[in-house]
Amino acid sequence: MIPLWMYLLVAALLFCIGIYGVLARRNAVAILMSVELMLNAVNINLVAFWRYLAPQDMSGQAFAAFVFVIAAAEAAVGLAILLFVYRTKRSVIVEDVNLLRW
């Protein structure tokens, strides 16, 4: 049997990779992809906890399903905003989008 902590460790590593991508990448599409990685890391945790600690209670799976919904909505709206930004700024580098910067 695979111990629970191994799933958690992989999820933590994936989450950290995602954070690094969000913080260090300049391209907005890459940042969105990194956010997806973070959401997936959370999903691994949710499903792993569900399986090991409460396999009859469906909360873990239900939460994972809601994360899917959030991810889909986030990707659709995020990419739409990106397209709009690209149309006005001709760039998807986040540092160029500084109109609201204080």
Binding site: N27, A75, L79, L82, L83, V92
Partner: peptide, 19 residues
Amino acid sequence: IVFAVMLTRSMTSLGEVRN
């Protein structure tokens, strides 16, 4: 995402990958 990459012509992001 692939669609967005192609529509924004940012396939190979010019300049630095990292900030």
